[in-house]
Design a protein around this nucleic acid. Structure first.
Lengths: 304, 304
DNA sequence: CCGCCGGTGAAAATTTCCTTCACGTTATTG
DNA sequence: CAATAACGTGAAGGAAATTTTCACCGGCGG
């Protein structure tokens, strides 16, 4: 047994540029002093890359051990590798001009600014999410879904919409997918799942009981379980065979967390869907075409 | 007295990216074994960045001392700094390679490409939507919503999720908003709307009868009507006081239109929400705080 | 043949990094 | 509210990297 913080997130390879995102994702599970280190690192990659362990420890008013621990948590074997990644990040930032529109939304912002800021933030969320997605986990999840007999998807609150979105899409390519909002229904259905089935839990916080419970039941009945969450260390991952991490953007008073987490979740869901559609192309393509055809009749005659 | 090669080239600061050039310039003045090192470094920055002094020495069949000497000659204080520069260079090359993923998604694309392409496309959709949004219309729509007594939102199919999203958000800041999926319910409720009320129709095609009909009824009963559509010339705009245009990205077999239209619609919905929250800040802020507080109790105790 | 000199690497010296362990703090339970 | 356990933290020692020192080797001119 080595240290307390050995795992970091699931066997993710050292992140290249998704560092700021990773910091935000993991920040809640960090201790105070580790947060200080993470903050310094995310705030000034170039500056920190120039420092030794000791230097960074002094700068943040912590100890060398803490710096190393933070590096580990972020997914690197040690500080040396974090430092290399930092240098890379700095170089990237150097070449790509920083837009610097990162400012928060204020109460008196003109509407045009609101549009610009929201669009920018959601873009950022997409970049972070894409960078932070573990493609191995994603691939495994896709395989499981593609081979599934039945798919149950759990999500409450804002995540319930994402669950519905995934269910709708999968249904359209002929998979038996159901989005479950009601916790009771979720659990009573979860007991019916078997090894050929897949259960998906969607929760930003990673600790939504109403969603964890059905996933646990599904897990214990032998179904393959997938968690889509912003907290890869949250309780939900306990019962998840595959964990897909969504990114966490900083939130504020006027922009609740639900906004960016939703964007992030939807991207993951889209990736799952396209992945499954690829694997089941033979049946998916005609199904998509058929559903498109069916919809045409619901529209009034085209104008123009 | 230190070493023979201390100066490097004229007192230049550590080179950032012009490393290959520097290697070529200085190659003639290098000894045989140093040339081997320089060559390896210039040929595979990423690979060399992963090696320690000893590793690079072995790889080039030289000694550690030679590696350090080469680093010095290239203008760095030591190997450590050369390594950092190498990592930066590798990251730059990496990122420079990215933008070429604009192509369509193919059936046999590896999962990593799928992620990159989807993220890129959704980003593009956001940019397009933000650019195409009429801020005057948006402002007017926000005003109407902020002053509304009651808000009905119509959307079917994929758009029904967007409708629900908007309704959820508005509810959280204390507005009486309802998402209507069922066409019959929509119409029967629409007849109840009066001039202080607002009806919102969300339809990508702009010609979804199930959504147009309730909007028409609301319009004729004197309610303020808003249409969120990708077809500003579609039938739905006939009955809309304010039209908010979403962007239409090209779709393909594996990526149905629903995907990008959803992203686009959600951005518009977010703008509406933030706009309304700004106008009603006095009541919205405490309401948001309260709903946040209420949710906290639905979560299991934090893991850590 | 001898001595000098640049090039080179083995090994020592040093810096940097990592691990262990004990102490203080905070949460938890009776 | 006290007792206890778990956790976060940094100091110090140990490991690994980097840097320096130094002796050797081979060639060339005297």
């Amino acid at each position: 047994m080595k240290e307390i913080f050995t795992g970091g997130s699931s066997g993710a390879p050292p992140a290249p540029a998704a560092l700021a995102a990773k910091v935000r994702t993991l920040a809640p599970s960090m201790t105070r002093s580790m947060q200080r280190v993470a903050e310094a690192v995310a705030g000034d990659p170039a500056g920190c890359a120039a420092l030794t362990v000791t230097g960074l420890a002094e700068l943040t008013g912590t100890s060398e051990a803490t710096v190393v621990r933070t590096a580990r948590l972020l997914g690197y074997p040690g500080y040396r590798d974090l430092r290399l990644a930092l240098a890379g990040l700095a170089a990237q930032q150097q070449s790509g001009r920083a837009p610097a529109v990162t400012a928060d939304i204020a109460v008196d912002d003109p509407i045009a600014d609101v549009v610009a800021k929201l669009a920018y933030d959601e873009q950022q969320t997409l970049v972070d999410t894409a960078a932070g997605l573990d493609t191995a986990q994603l691939g495994a999840a896709v395989s499981a879904l593609a081979a599934a007999r039945r798919i149950d998807i759990y999500g409450v609150g804002a995540s319930s919409l994402v669950a519905q979105d995934l269910a709708q899409k999968l249904l359209r390519i002929g998979m038996l997918a159901h989005a479950m909002g009601d916790p009771h229904l979720s659990v009573t259905n979860a007991v019916l799942l078997r090894s050929k089935d897949v259960a998906v839990a969607i929760t930003h916080s990673g600790s939504t009981g109403d969603v964890i419970e059905p996933l646990r039941v599904a897990f214990e009945h032998g179904a393959t379980t997938i968690a889509i969450t912003g907290r890869p260390d949250g309780p939900v991952t306990q019962y998840a065979d595959h964990v897909l991490t969504t990114s966490t953007a900083r939130e504020s008073e006027l922009r609740p967390a639900a906004m960016s987490s939703r964007t992030s979740q939807l991207l993951v869901v889209d990736c799952l869907f396209v992945g499954v559609a690829q694997r089941t192309y033979e049946t998916a393509a005609p199904a998509l075409a058929a559903s498109y055809e069916a919809l045409a009749h619901r529209h009034s005659p085209r104008s123009r």
